[in-house]
Amino acid sequence: MSARAERAGRPGAGRARALLGPLGAAALTGAVFTYVGAVDPNAPGHYPTCPFLFLTGLYCPGCGTLRAVHALAHGDVVAALGLNPLAVVTVPFLLFWWGRWALRTWQRRPVRTSLAHPAYIWAFLALVIVYWIVRNLPFGRFLAP
């Protein structure tokens, strides 16, 4: 039996195979989210120290993200925002892009190679750099974890 005849006999097989990417990414993300929710990053010895913080004494843009994810896993959005607001605000955008990827894959529409227009990516990079600088300045201490 040819491959075309096999596909005609199982019309959903191609879609299911195509969804392996988005579903695999969701499963991996869910596993990491579950692990960080179960293993408290506030307890010493479970995770390594941020190398940038260790070497410089300054916070990087990611400092506090593990604890923020742990707080989100326990439904404490306010605590998560206090630990790393940029990471928490980024979550809905990541969910949107994942949903768009999954939907386009399901509909067998071409998946764009970039997440967003390059101007948005550069703007986000600039935002991360400004966030990184401001959270280490005296007036930006409210952004520190």
Rank of each mutant, 00 (worst) to 15 (best):
T34I: 02
P138Q: 12
F93T: 11
F54D: 13
F142C: 06
T49H: 09
Y131L: 03
P138Y: 12
A144T: 08
V89H: 02
D76Y: 02
Y47T: 00
R4G: 03
Y47W: 11
V134P: 04
W101R: 05
W122P: 00
V78R: 14
P41L: 07
G9M: 10
R67E: 07
S2E: 05
W97Q: 15
R17T: 13
A73K: 06
L20C: 13
D40P: 09
A16V: 14
A38F: 10
N42R: 12
F52Y: 08
T113G: 14
A73Q: 04
I121A: 14
L66S: 11
A68F: 04
G140F: 05
L125D: 01
T65I: 05
L66K: 04
V36H: 02
Q107K: 11
W132V: 03
L58C: 09
R104W: 01
A27C: 14
A68H: 02
L55V: 07
A71M: 07
E6I: 11
G45H: 00
A38P: 09
T56A: 05
P22D: 06
A27V: 13
T105M: 04
R7S: 14
R10A: 15
A116L: 15
A80R: 04
S2P: 15
L94M: 14
V91W: 01
Q107H: 03
G45L: 08
A87F: 11
G9E: 12
P138C: 13
A38L: 15
A18R: 15
W101T: 09
W122C: 06
G62L: 10
G21N: 01
Y120N: 04
L66M: 12
F142Q: 04
H70F: 10
F142N: 01
T105C: 08
R100W: 08
H74S: 07
T65M: 12
L94A: 15
R112G: 14
G21V: 15
A3H: 09
P41C: 05
H74K: 08
P51M: 03
A43E: 12
H46W: 03
V128R: 02
N84G: 10
G140K: 02
G57N: 06
L94P: 08
L72Y: 02
Y35F: 13
V89E: 00
E6K: 12
F52E: 05
G24N: 00
L58I: 01
P138L: 12
D40Q: 13
T34V: 09
T90F: 10
